[in-house]
Nucleic acid binder design. Sequence first.
DNA 1: TATGAATGAGCGTTCATTCAT
DNA 2: AATGAATGAACGCTCATTCAT
Lengths: 204, 204, 204, 204
Amino acid sequence: MARITGSNGARTAAAIRHAATRQIYRHGFAAMNLRTLAAEVGIQPSSLYNHIRSKQALLADLMQAHMEALLAATDAALAAAGPMPLDRLRAFIGHHVLYHMERREEVYIANFELRALDAANYGRIVALRSAYERRLMALLEEGVAAGELVVDDITVTAFALLAMLTGICTWYRPNGRLDKARLSALHTDLAIEGLRRRPCPRSA
Amino acid sequence: MARITGSNGARTAAAIRHAATRQIYRHGFAAMNLRTLAAEVGIQPSSLYNHIRSKQALLADLMQAHMEALLAATDAALAAAGPMPLDRLRAFIGHHVLYHMERREEVYIANFELRALDAANYGRIVALRSAYERRLMALLEEGVAAGELVVDDITVTAFALLAMLTGICTWYRPNGRLDKARLSALHTDLAIEGLRRRPCPRSA
Amino acid sequence: MARITGSNGARTAAAIRHAATRQIYRHGFAAMNLRTLAAEVGIQPSSLYNHIRSKQALLADLMQAHMEALLAATDAALAAAGPMPLDRLRAFIGHHVLYHMERREEVYIANFELRALDAANYGRIVALRSAYERRLMALLEEGVAAGELVVDDITVTAFALLAMLTGICTWYRPNGRLDKARLSALHTDLAIEGLRRRPCPRSA
Amino acid sequence: MARITGSNGARTAAAIRHAATRQIYRHGFAAMNLRTLAAEVGIQPSSLYNHIRSKQALLADLMQAHMEALLAATDAALAAAGPMPLDRLRAFIGHHVLYHMERREEVYIANFELRALDAANYGRIVALRSAYERRLMALLEEGVAAGELVVDDITVTAFALLAMLTGICTWYRPNGRLDKARLSALHTDLAIEGLRRRPCPRSA
DNA sequence: TATGAATGAGCGTTCATTCAT
DNA sequence: AATGAATGAACGCTCATTCAT
């Protein structure tokens, strides 16, 4: 007699989020339409509204969930990395690259659909994004303080590194020439080698 | 009664391209609409069609013009840089960063609106884009061949560098904290330091 | 575990009728929606259908209940008024005005939502409405037959009087400047003075 | 060569206003839909928007045009009526009834669709409506001041008279039993007889 | 009796585009 | 070269209603 309450509804909601992520990633939020989304989920367009409040809210929810998951996973990776600044920076970068390969659709959306958010949602999501950027800046500062890194400008360097490390989600394909571990190692080296203090002179 | 035919029309066409660049940059191609574009230019939507064939063709023309200008300017910068691999790489990077600050709207469009192109245009623009990427790969190979660079994977490194150096066009603002020259130098160092062969050991 | 079946349900049904009356009065039948109605009652929209057959049937039931109550109350007022034509007309008018102030929402609906009824319901409700109009026409005829009234056209006069006396339900507010008794008296005088046969000449 | 500028457009706009008046009168604003309206005009629904800003603006424009025309026509009728209070009141009433028979659709809309207006439009239209009501109140006051009328409460009497005289537009049909002149005379008498001061006593 | 999820029809509106003038 | 009016397709969304639980 007992109905598995919400079971079907929860499954539909998850299917909507999944399909929406795919379609926004492929076509962009503005170009994605709710009729096609509903069709991919296998329901009528009007049924979408049993699970979302609006197209805009769907995007915002997707982005918020992504940012919160990314922050939590990052903090977990840092917690496991121990106390050494360079280890922690490596952990951040390695985790970032792996995460961005595994969740490249969510990542891409969170990076390139900010402009599609209305004012209220924009503020909320950008705050989460800034928190993530601050994680990296803090690590760079730790490294400098420990004398292990040379960083001319923390902010610019953080932005440049994030751009480099995030870029992978625009071209990575699961069955490509190189596997995730290799790509992660390559990016980590590229990012860190340019920053490490060395005993020898940096002459031009 | 005779009007200097073409003069006014050419001015209108230029105004359309300029306004379109701004609006696509701000809202994305799919979210930008021809009503608003026409309003910004100061004409009626239907008058747009005296100057463009379609919204799609407008985008493709903008992207093609940008890519061709970028390639020409890059080749000029390389021609002026002399024969030394490291100088040439510095010239490429310096030029890339400056260009991406000065023309950040066109650059952003060319990078993030590829998916809005129809099949025929897509092929044409991607070919130009690949030509640009190959410029950088060639420089990396030259540097390795000359024994001045250590590059584990040319393709991945080129993509990673381009992502890093292009990222600036998403946040650079003309009146920001740092000027163009400083930002260019910072990025050049970040990009090159990680690649330079050094006499001393790399390991920690 | 046993619930006093029907008790709660009857309360819900009454709450629905009450809320529906308010919302139709305020926004009109077409503009009123079952979502908002359900929300005001404190149930889900689908639960409404345990108490109503359809939105249309809800309206028809409301209007029928109103018309039957109005007819019954009118007949009771006339029965109490005695045999004199002028007394009976005063009784009708006084009752009408008081009733239209006290039940102005139901009255308004019954008067202005006839066009929202489907064919079958329309016929039924209009028949009740006509019965009410005939009550007034009969009183006018009695008054003329008794030589107490001068009425040029019974039908037009009845319609004009009803329009005047019903108008009050569009602007009456319980805490307004004048109380019900005063408003009732004012309207009764306005309605009757123009009809009374007088010993003196009518012309100016 | 010279195009009769706007000719076709103006004709379409007029056809839209005409068809909208009919459909709002018949079904009410909320129940009327723009697809049917467009079909009646003989254009596509989207073409409506070359002539209206929105459904709401269409209603507001219709009501405003009606109220302004009514006020202007009323003032013209009063100007032609001469200085005598009773003549002026007769002129107002006679004009009101004739106008409400001839333009009963516009009148009905203006009276019963106020609640469909948004806040800004509501204020504007109600102000015009009040101006019209004040015309009648002023005439009643003139009549009382001249000793020709007995009016217990100016406001209530004005509302009651307007309700009576406006009611005709809910049932008048052009080919009915009585013609306009007769209906106008009947209503004028009904309205005025109850207010006239008489030499003989008003005993019950 | 109440509900969450689904439905199909339809809503007001916007869109890029066309075309006679 | 520019326009006003028109178009057909599509959009996000709301509606009354159904139904298994």
